[in-house]
Design a protein around this nucleic acid. Sequence first.
DNA 1: GCCATTACTTACAAATTTGTATGTATCCCA
DNA 2: TGGGATACATACAAATTTGTAAGTAATGGC
Lengths: 120, 120
Amino acid sequence: MATRKVNSTYTRNEQSLFECDLSYAINKIGGRWKLQILSMLENRTLRFTALKKEFAFMSERMLTLQLRALEQDGLVKRTVYAEVPPRVEYELTNTAMELWPILNQLSQWGSKQRSSHREL
Amino acid sequence: MATRKVNSTYTRNEQSLFECDLSYAINKIGGRWKLQILSMLENRTLRFTALKKEFAFMSERMLTLQLRALEQDGLVKRTVYAEVPPRVEYELTNTAMELWPILNQLSQWGSKQRSSHREL
DNA sequence: GCCATTACTTACAAATTTGTATGTATCCCA
DNA sequence: TGGGATACATACAAATTTGTAAGTAATGGC
C-alpha cells in the first residue's frame, strides 16, 4: 500500500499476474478493506468523516489508502468541495456497480462453502 | 502464510472480516498464486513435480504453502501414493469447480474494466 | 555403499502491508 | 488571539508474507 521497490523478485512476479484478467480483477477488490468500503458505498454517497465513523475499527490511514486505491482503479469517485473545513465525498462508479451481481454470486458460494466446510 | 500471532490488532480485525461471506470467499481465492494453481488444475490431475515445472517462476515453498491452503479450504484434493519415490497428486474438488462460472464473469469484468481504464 | 528421485520441511532474510501517533492547512467563530 | 472542524500526510514500528538456500527420508539401481 506504500511505494514499492521496482525490481524485487516479488514485484517482477507480480507483473505476470497482471497479464491475467482474473488476477487483475481480484487485485482490484482484494485489498484488506476494499470490499467493506465498496459495500458501504452501495447506493449512497458518503463523505470521509462518515466513512471514518462507520469503520471505527479501521485506521484512518488505511481508510485513506484504500480509498485512494479504489479511486485509482476507477471504482470510486472522489469529489472535493472547495470549502472550509474541507468536504470530500465518495461514491461508486458505474464500473463498481457492475460488480455487484458477480460479487453476490461469490458471496453465495462463500456461504455455501462455509456451512459445508466448518473448520472448527 | 506462516503461523500468526493470535492477538495483534491485525488478526483481531481479520476476525470481523470472516463474518462476511464475500470476504470469506475472496480470502480463499485471493492468495498470491491460488488462482494460477486453480486454473492449472482445471480439468486435470497433476502431481507436485508437474506443477513445479509449470510454475517455474514460483518458489517451491510458495507452491507448497498455497497448495496446503487450498487443500485446507477444500478447494483442492491431495492424494498421496505410498511409493518410493513418493507420488502426490492434486486435483480440484467439486466446490472449486463451482467457482468457474463466477470467476469467468469476474474475468470478463476485469477485461472490460482494463481496456476502458488504461493506466499508462 | 553411493547416487538419484520425489515431495516436501526448515531457517533465515528481504519485501510488503498495516498500525500508531503526531502534524498540517484553511477559515470561521467566540 | 485561540480554538475547532475536516481531510488528509508523514514518520516510524510491528506484523505478515514471500523469497532463498539448504536439508530430509525412503528406496531402487549401479
